[in-house]
Computed example of a mutant assay.
Amino acid sequence: MLFSVVVPVYNSARSLPELYERIKGVMEERGWDFEIIMVDDRSRDESYQVMQRLREEDKRVKIIKLAFNAGQHSATLCGLRYATGDYVITIDDDLQHPPEEIPRLYARIKEGYEVVFGVPRERKHPFYRNLGSRLIDKSLGLIYKKPATLKMSSFRIMDKRTAGRLAACRRRNIYLAALLLQDVSRAVSLEVKHDKRKYGRSNYNFSKALGLALDLIFSYSHLPWQVITWLWAGLLLLSLCWGLKFYFYPGDKSICQGGSLFIIGGILLLGFLTSLTGWKYAKCWLKEMDGRPPYSIEKMEL
């Protein structure tokens, strides 16, 4: 039985040695064969040099350096494409996901699930990041009718088949949770411990989470167009009823003028929202159609 542990890395030079030791300790204690695939997402610190030193000490550590900062999801996808394990685990590089919880995830997936998400009992994130996480969770619920009981996180274990389906994705806009909801039918959440961040500050903030939620909605659903269409239909119906009322039952002209101004204002507002929606969809579509991959590899040692 081989386990592949995929770690997207960004500015985590101080945490990587401890993360490696803890993963190794968990695996060797149980006699599990494993590989650790670290993908450096163009860090600004010495993360890649630390990865090289770990690789020199242990050839089970496979390292990849991306040519440009592609984002956590694309870096994780890159690691999945080089994973060879029977089970694939993805874990963050900041030590907030305890590797000691991996055996519990494995025990749960052995019950017949395709993917198990390790969800914190209590998130040790700042308020704004928790708010962003809830926003993304609500977005996934709107798009995929995700059950409220299914919570998702970047700490997860999946079987080889599921990892292979993810790795085969050729989209430019990558959001792994959305891809998993499209492809799997047997997913479950498991509450796990969540530690405080030991080094540095998180690279996520509320504005990034909001941008991610918008990209998710516009890249993976037609919901905004549906909302705009229904709003236009409602405004058209309101205008028709308003016009018929004053055609058959003329009344106070000031009321008629006020209602007309309201309808004109609605048309202008909806026109503006339609333009914004079209611009966002066009931006996402052009990104998908430009033919470039979501990441590029500068060098790797496997």
Rank of each mutant, 00 (worst) to 15 (best):
Y220S: 02
I263D: 03
G251Q: 06
G265M: 10
W279N: 13
W232F: 15
F272G: 07
S275H: 01
G243T: 11
W230D: 05
P224R: 04
A233I: 12
Q226D: 02
W225E: 12
T274M: 06
S239Q: 06
T229G: 04
Y247C: 06
P224Q: 08
L216S: 00
T277Y: 01
I263E: 09
I228D: 01
L237E: 11
T274N: 13
F218I: 04
F218E: 08
W230R: 14
A233C: 02
W242F: 15
G266F: 09
K280P: 05
L238Y: 08
L240Q: 07
F248A: 09
G265H: 00
W242I: 07
G265R: 06
K245A: 11
N205P: 08
I264A: 15
D215K: 13
F262W: 11
S275M: 11
L223I: 12
F262G: 10
F262L: 15
L269T: 12
L216P: 09
W232I: 05
G266N: 08
P224W: 04
G259R: 03
L236Q: 02
G265I: 02
L231K: 13
A209P: 02
A213Q: 07
C256D: 00
A213T: 09
G259E: 08
F206G: 03
S219V: 04
L235A: 04
F248I: 07
Y220V: 02
S275I: 11
L237G: 11
W230V: 10
L212K: 08
L261A: 14
G271I: 08
S207V: 13
I264F: 14
G271Q: 09
L237R: 09
Q257S: 11
L237T: 15
L214Q: 10
L236N: 06
Q257A: 14
S219I: 01
D252P: 02
W279A: 15
L270F: 04
L237H: 00
F262K: 00
C256G: 09
P250V: 01
Y249K: 14
A233H: 06
L240H: 10
S239C: 04
A233M: 11
S219N: 03
H222R: 11
W279P: 01
A233F: 10
T229C: 09
G278W: 13
H222M: 12
T277C: 13
L238K: 05
G258A: 15
K245T: 12
S219W: 05
L210D: 01
G258L: 13
L276K: 14
F246K: 07
W279K: 15
K253N: 04
L261Y: 11
T274L: 09
L238V: 06
L270W: 00
Y249M: 13
G278Y: 09
C256T: 03
D215H: 06
L210M: 14
L240R: 03
L244N: 01
K280N: 01
P224T: 07
T229F: 13
P250H: 00
K280G: 05
L261T: 05
